[in-house]
Design a protein around this nucleic acid. Sequence first.
DNA 1: GTCTATATAGCGATAGAC
DNA 2: GTCTATCGCTATATAGAC
Lengths: 191, 191
Amino acid sequence: MTHSETRERPGKEERLVTSARELLHEQGVQCTTLAEIAEAADVPPGNVYYYFKTRDDLLRAVIDSRADNVRSLLASLDRRATPQARLKGLARAWADSAEVVAAHGCPLGSLVSELNKLDESLAKDASGLLRTLLDWAESQFREMGRRDAGDLAVTFIAGVQGAALLADTLSDAKLMTREARRLERWVESLG
Amino acid sequence: MTHSETRERPGKEERLVTSARELLHEQGVQCTTLAEIAEAADVPPGNVYYYFKTRDDLLRAVIDSRADNVRSLLASLDRRATPQARLKGLARAWADSAEVVAAHGCPLGSLVSELNKLDESLAKDASGLLRTLLDWAESQFREMGRRDAGDLAVTFIAGVQGAALLADTLSDAKLMTREARRLERWVESLG
DNA sequence: GTCTATATAGCGATAGAC
DNA sequence: GTCTATCGCTATATAGAC
């Protein structure tokens, strides 16, 4: 970090990651060029390589940034009193972002899905995003005294991700909110 | 069709669509080049354009081919006696292809997901694949006397698609079979 | 009708000027 | 440390030979 960054707008590296995050979500990984990312970040095109050695390095930085978001979301949910309340809060997070999900897909699911085909190494990194969610959900179900906590976590996250795919495909935000609400009721019914 | 196609292997156009189907599923839409498709179909590279005016035209042919598969699968399930048996048969179809799904994703879901980002026009065409499944499932739930047939159809197809994404991401075929079996029991419990 | 050679364009990446 | 000019590659698509 240089001396001036504390008072001005974020540094170029941070701006590149932020722009890349948004564009990858809106346009997909393969459709987004370094030139577009650089322009959105207001950084000269060829200059990207000063901050990231390769395009994949920038993609990895985006994955890390998403991972930070997931961790901080889960950390905020951990403050809730009961595992049911925590799980319902997670479902609510998707309901709250239904419009974005219907427009561009789940930021996590669509990224992972695309990388699964694109690059084995990046896919492995990105799989951690879903794994973190699954592990956290499993912990909550276990705290509820469920022996089948792992299966319940899969059902929960799969329900959210499948609904996100359908909402995106049909451009139907309400589909996402309805399914998220149903999952909240389902969690309640297990209590 | 020429005079010789009846006795020999499928014509070049058909071979191109078949090869494209497989490669698009295994490698994704964007990672698969026309040259690869042509080579797999044993057709000279530049010659693809004699059969398909553009790359998108070939992609559309693949979508149509997938749509035919979906329709014939649903037609075969329609022969079963009860809507429960039909829905369970649909879930079983994914359980039976769990290995392929864990290796390359759901052939329908991953295609639709990728096209959602890639091209609006193709995405619209491909969305029909999921729409057909949803409409058919809704009919079955309605025949079971459920007022919320549309919501149940969403839950059902979302569950399958979400599980396919997780199975692909974690390379875990058993995850797909477990979740498909759970959906079968769920359908049974609604009867 | 069938196929080859090539045009065109856009991307990631690099070398080196400032 | 910052940026520009450009290289090399690959993909779609076309023009035209056979």
